[in-house]
């Protein structure tokens, strides 16, 4: 770990004012310190934002929730409103990491998790994300945990978050404070970037900008599920995951908000898939058509080829589960 200056920010303005290319904000620290110890991330300055007043979960005017960036994963998962109205989010949070890590990890930090790609984590390996232009060693290597959707010749990494997948299905927006003190919000789908030829750019956050909150829209009448497939029963990243917010009215699917984890550089959502489902009566054939569209451009890298049938089956099983009562 490289030496750094440590600064404790007393206000968001103080934090963004101290920001810059070689500065990182530290909140939970669970991923940042992990990477700093390995010299994968080498900031000159750490700005500790834990004392900022961003820990509230408040109801918004339109009946949604504004989740402060420093709300821990534990607190968010246990919040009664989240458990009642946004079960997919509570489940996703609880499926991630461990009790200890969820007590540390924050909402803002979770969105900014870096990939778990082993080649990114090992400074002896070329990696376009860590060292732009050096190459991608995951391609042609061991890439069992890598992307099948939206990858590029530069990078096939996946985003490891569960929380962000659920938020993507819920249509969450990210609230960002700029260096001038103004705050803007952005749809989570627009916030993340696919790797293209600049995999080092992972999101729309500008230098020194600070995530201050995530805003969830008003809850909708729906059944929700977060299904995560993994290598051990607990404490493992998703091989694939499906976040689903589904409603069935009069035997027809009225809503099918779907997001997918473990398969791309960002939480994946494909509105064409949802369009196939909405307005139709649930059936295996329909689910297959949705999966066909989802996987139309899916590409395996060798060790991760299995994710293509696995995602299809997991999507179908999730849809079956959430539409089961209506189908009977």
């Amino acid at each position: 770990m490289k030496s750094f200056d440590y600064l404790r920010a007393g206000s968001t303005g103080e934090a963004t004012g101290a920001g810059g290319a070689a500065t990182r904000f530290i909140a939970g620290g669970t991923n940042l310190l992990d990477l700093m110890k390995l010299e994968v991330m080498t900031p000159d300055k750490l700005v500790d934002i834990n004392r900022l007043d961003l820990k509230a979960i408040e109801e918004t005017e339109d009946g949604g929730l504004r989740v402060g960036a420093l709300v821990t994963n534990s607190d968010l998962a246990a919040d009664p409103r989240v458990r009642r109205d946004y079960a997919v989010l509570s489940r996703a949070l609880l499926s991630g990491a461990t009790g200890q890590l969820r007590n540390m990890a924050t909402t803002g930090g979770n969105l900014l998790q870096r990939t778990r790609c082993s080649y990114f984590y090992d400074t002896a390996m070329p990696c376009n994300k860590r060292e732009p232009g050096s190459g991608c060693q995951a391609i042609g290597g061991y890439n069992r945990i890598h992307a099948i959707l939206g990858a590029s010749d530069s990078c096939i990494a996946t985003h490891p978050s569960d929380m962000a997948v659920a938020m993507r299905a819920l249509g969450a927006r990210v609230e960002i404070e700029g260096t001038d003190g103004t705050r803007r919000t952005q749809d989570l789908g627009d916030f993340y970037r696919l790797p293209s030829d600049t995999p080092q750019v992972e999101n729309a956050l500008g230098e020194a900008e600070l995530i201050t909150a995530v805003i969830l829209p008003a809850p909708v009448t729906s059944r929700q599920a977060y299904r995560k497939v993994r290598d051990r029963a607990s404490y493992a990243f998703a091989l694939v995951s499906v976040a689903a917010v589904v409603a069935v009215e009069e035997g027809k699917i009225a809503r099918a908000d779907l997001a997918f984890g473990g398969v791309a550089h960002a939480p994946w959502r494909n509105e064409a898939v949802e369009a196939i489902l909405v307005g139709e009566a649930p059936s295996d054939a329909l689910f297959d058509r949705a999966a066909d569209t989802l996987l139309e451009k899916a590409k395996g890298q060798g060790s991760n080829d299995f994710k293509i049938p696995l995602l299809r089956r997991t999507l179908k099983a999730t849809l079956r589960e959430l539409t089961a009562e209506a189908a009977r």
């Binding site: 778990r116 082993s118 080649y119 984590y121 090992d122 290597g141 061991y142 945990i145 290598d231 051990r232 029963a233 607990s234 404490y235 493992a236 990243f237």
Partner: peptide
């Protein structure tokens, strides 16, 4: 060794 940590080398956990 690609998976040289306990996040990716999967020792069984309590729930296993």
């Amino acid at each position: 060794v690609v998976n040289r940590d306990l996040a990716e080398y999967h020792v069984p956990v309590n729930l296993d």
